[in-house]
Write a protein that binds this DNA or RNA. Structure first.
Length: 430
RNA sequence: GGAGAUGUAUCGAAGUGGUCAUAACGAGAACGACUCGAAAUCGUUUUGCCUUCACGGGCACAUGGGUUCGAAUCCCAUCAUCUCCGCCA
């Protein structure tokens, strides 16, 4: 959500930003919201005047009643009543207008960073940098579920019976590998100064609308029947929600947190053949990082955040690259974002394993996350989030890149303490 | 899940239909005075939002509704906290 004052003063910039994001259909919203806002302020002014006079007259009634001057009091009551109907109309109008303004403001995309490449969709995303050599071995790399099956590590069939498509049972070494990933990632981030946190896995609707757009909400969030609760799609939701309606002193910033949670996603729509197995599922676990900082520091933190993920994947011998989201592929709330993609020697291409975003002050404005400066002034904080690791997807990258010709899987040194010291996993014989 | 109580400034807390919500009273904090310095004492300051060029005006007593000329106060709903009971990893 952008600042209404900014929009009022820079309508052309807001429109240009929409064009850059290929959202021409939203252009009319700018003039519409300016008009509604002007009307809302006029309405408020008139209503305020009526409220002021009512307040004054009501006080007089109190005084007159105290003095026992009933008739004079009744006269003034009549005066108040005369304005009451107009006030009621205005108050209804105030509510209606401010609701309309908010609804439109929620749909107006955040101003993107000047560095964001312009393009209509993900085909225009730009590779920024490669880390590690993307190699293809001269033996065949099977589909990830086939690798897992060699270890008796996955049971999709039972999961389908129990919960339906999009769920999985992980077992034995593969399940252990999964847990090792989150634990390793947790310690990795703690070592880099982040505070570990386990958040609520369900959140109220006001938090949901604070952290994401309506379209995202509809496409992603599972609602608990009969309660005002949603299963989180990522711990970012409850972690940013943690700061709802707070004012922080400048010297305490930044807050750097790393959180663990299961994630639940509807994943509406059809998915391709490469998205079978554990690639796109309704439930997975994730180690996340979030930062709440001063506006001038968010760019620096953005670069630090994705670098953490790159370093983690490199420590597990997985080649990765960063891919910058172009304007059209950028979610409306985001100022800038990039994906960290892992190399798939089987597909001979990179695939998404994490996403790093700078939200600017958009979430902060919706959720009222503010900073009190040294001079007492208040301003909105900036928020960022990034995936440390989401194990099912990480497992795909990990297994494919660490698979040997004989079917065994290397355990990189960094991960061994979390895998009982094993140097490699060997497939089961039965 | 059941019963009861509570929700007001940084904290404790008074106010139970008007004429003290820039919120009594107490504490804490900041600044100043006194002091060689400190303690004590005295004085001043100590929420946020909307609107207006400004003066000013409005809103907020957990949240949302309702009653009323007027609500912190009365009514309803929701949320949270505490105590007791029940259930439970």
């Amino acid at each position: 959500m952008i600042d209404l004052k900014f929009l009022r003063e820079n309508p052309e910039a807001v429109k240009q930003n929409m064009k850059n994001k290929f959202q021409e259909h939203k252009l009319s919203m700018v003039d519409e919201v300016i008009e509604l806002d002007a009307k809302a302020r006029r309405t408020q002014q008139e209503a305020d005047e009526l409220r002021a006079s009512r307040k004054k007259l009501s006080k007089q009634i109190g005084v007159l009643m105290g003095q026992g001057k009933k008739e004079e009091a009744e006269e003034i009551k009549a005066q108040v009543n005369a304005g009451a109907q107009r006030l009621a109309e205005l108050e209804a109008l105030e509510r209606e207008l401010s609701e309309k303004v908010t609804n439109i403001m929620m749909a107006i995309p955040n101003m993107i960073d000047p560095s964001v490449p312009i393009g209509p969709d993900d085909s225009c995303n730009v590779e920024i940098e490669k880390f590690g050599e993307p190699t293809v071995p001269d033996y065949e790399i099977p589909y990830h579920t086939d690798i897992m099956e060699k270890f008796n590590g996955i049971d999709l069939e039972s999961a389908a019976k129990v919960a339906g498509n999009g769920f999985y049972y992980l077992m034995g070494d593969i399940a252990r590998l999964h847990s090792a990933m989150t634990t390793y990632a947790r310690d990795f981030m703690i070592d880099r100064g982040f505070t570990y946190c386990i958040p609520p896995f369900m959140i109220r609707s006001n938090v949901v609308t604070g952290v994401m757009s309506f379209e995202e909400m509809d496409a992603m969030m599972y609602k608990i029947e009969g309660e005002d609760l949603y299963l989180i799609g990522t711990s970012e939701h409850s972690m940013i929600g943690k700061f709802i309606d707070t004012i922080h002193s400048e010297e305490k910033l930044p807050y750097t947190l790393t959180s663990y949670s299961p994630c639940f996603r509807k994943e509406k729509g059809a998915h391709g053949i490469e998205e079978r197995g554990v690639y796109r599922i309704h439930q997975f676990e994730k180690q996340e990082m979030i930062v709440v900082c001063k506006p001038e520091e968010s760019k620096v933190w953005y670069d630090k955040l994705w670098q953490n993920t790159v370093d983690l994947f490199r420590s597990l011998d997985v080649p990765v690259r960063t891919l910058e989201c172009c304007s059209g592929d950028l979610a409306d709330l985001k100022v800038k974002s990039c994906d960290v993609e892992a190399w798939s020697p089987r597909q001979k291409k990179y695939f998404e394993v994490g996403s790093c975003s700078n939200l600017g002050d958009a979430q902060a404005r919706r959720l009222k996350i503010r900073v009190r400066g040294q001079d007492g002034s208040k301003y909105y904080a900036h928020t960022l989030n990034n995936t440390v690791v989401a194990p099912p997807r990480m497992l795909i990258a990990f297994l494919e890149n660490n698979l040997n010709e004989d079917g065994s899987v290397n355990i990189p040194t960094a991960l061994r303490p979390y895998m009982g010291g094993k140097e490699r996993l060997v497939p089961s014989t039965n």
